[in-house]
C-alpha cells in the first residue's frame, strides 16, 4: 500500500513538473499575463473599483472567487485540526496544590474532582507558571496588538494588509494570552465553541455578501449592485464591499489560528498545554 502511494506521488510530481515546461519564463514581457492582464489591472483598477491599493483590488474583487475559496481552505484546515486532534475523553489524572500548606496532590481516580477555589488550586504537570514580569507586559501589549490588527483589517484597501494578515495578528494576540497566562484562562474567557462559531461566521460573511449581490440583480460577488443598501458615494460601494469581505476573512482567520493552536499544544484536551 505504501509502495502504491509512493508511485502515485511520483507520477503526480512528474506530471506537475512536465506541466511547468509550458509556463512562460519568469518576468517574460511577452507572456500572456504581461501582455493583457497586468496592463488591464493597472490602467482600470482605480477607475473601476475606487480602491487605491491595486493588490487588494485584484485580490478581493477581480479574483474574488479565489480569495473566497482560500478562506474556505483555512476554515477546512481549522476543521481538520479540530476533528483529528480534539479529545473529549476525561483526563485520567489531575494535580492539585493545597494552598495553605503547598502540598501537591496527585489524583489518579478520574471520577474524583476536588473543588478548585480558596483551598485547592489546579496545577498543570507540563506547564511551568510564567512569572509576574511576562504576565504584566503581555497584559499591557495585548490591547495594542489587537488595535493594530483591526487597523490592518480596516485599512486593507488603502495600504498593505487585509483580512488574512489582520486575522493572524489578532489570533497571535489571543495566543499570547494563552502563552503568558495559561491555556485554561483563554479557553475560560472565550469558549472553544465561540471560536468554532466565529470560524464559520467569517466564511459566511464573505459568502453572504457575495450572494447578496444576486438578488440585487448582479452576478455572484458583483459588489457594485449593493449600492442601494449602503450609504455614501455609490462609486465607493466596491471598496465598502471589499471591506466587508475582509472583515469576514479576518474573523475566520483569527478563529482558525486559535483553534489550531489550542488543539496542538494541549493534544486536543484543552485542559493544559505547553
Amino acid at each position: 500500500m505504501k509502495f502504491l502511494g509512493f508511485i502515485v506521488v511520483c507520477l503526480t510530481g512528474a506530471l506537475l513538473l512536465y506541466g511547468t515546461g509550458d509556463f512562460s519564463n519568469w518576468g517574460d514581457p511577452n507572456s500572456p499575463a504581461s501582455l493583457h492582464l497586468s496592463n488591464e489591472y493597472i490602467e482600470r483598477a482605480l477607475e473601476e473599483t475606487q480602491v487605491p491599493n491595486l493588490v487588494t483590488a485584484v485580490l478581493a474583487d477581480y479574483r474574488g472567487f479565489d480569495t473566497m475559496f482560500e478562506t474556505a481552505v483555512i476554515f477546512c484546515a481549522g476543521l481538520a485540526c479540530f476533528l483529528l486532534l480534539r479529545d473529549f475523553r476525561e483526563k485520567k489524572q489531575r494535580f492539585y496544590r493545597h494552598i495553605p500548606t503547598g502540598v501537591i496532590l496527585h489524583v489518579k481516580n478520574s471520577k474524583k474532582v476536588l473543588p478548585v477555589g480558596r483551598e485547592f488550586e489546579h496545577i498543570d504537570k507540563d506547564w511551568v507558571p510564567s512569572d509576574l514580569i511576562i504576565k504584566t507586559v503581555c497584559r499591557i501589549l495585548v490591547p495594542f496588538i489587537q488595535i493594530y490588527a483591526m487597523y490592518v483589517v480596516a485599512h486593507g484597501d488603502f495600504s498593505p494588509g487585509g483580512g488574512f494578515q489582520g486575522g493572524v495578528i489578532f489570533g497571535s494576540s489571543l495566543i499570547l494570552i494563552a502563552i503568558s497566562y495559561d491555556l485554561k484562562i483563554l479557553v475560560r474567557r472565550i469558549k472553544e465553541k465561540v471560536f468554532g462559531i466565529f470560524a464559520a461566521v467569517g466564511v459566511l460573511i464573505y459568502v453572504g455578501i457575495a450572494a447578496l449581490c444576486m438578488p440585487m440583480g448582479g452576478n455572484f460577488l458583483d459588489y457594485s449592485k449593493l449600492a442601494p443598501l449602503l450609504p455614501g458615494d455609490p462609486h465607493h460601494v466596491r471598496a465598502l464591499g471589499m471591506l466587508g469581505v475582509e472583515i469576514g476573512v479576518g474573523i475566520a482567520v483569527t478563529a482558525v489560528m486559535v483553534i489550531i493552536y489550542i488543539n496542538i499544544v494541549s493534544e486536543g484536551r484543552l485542559e493544559e498545554g505547553l
Binding site: S130, I134, V137, C138, L141
Partner: peptide
C-alpha cells in the same frame, strides 16, 4: 522597550 527585555527575560527564565 517593553517587549525586548521581556523576551530576553523569558528566554533566560
Amino acid at each position: 522597550f517593553l517587549s525586548s527585555p521581556t523576551a530576553t527575560h523569558s528566554i533566560v527564565d
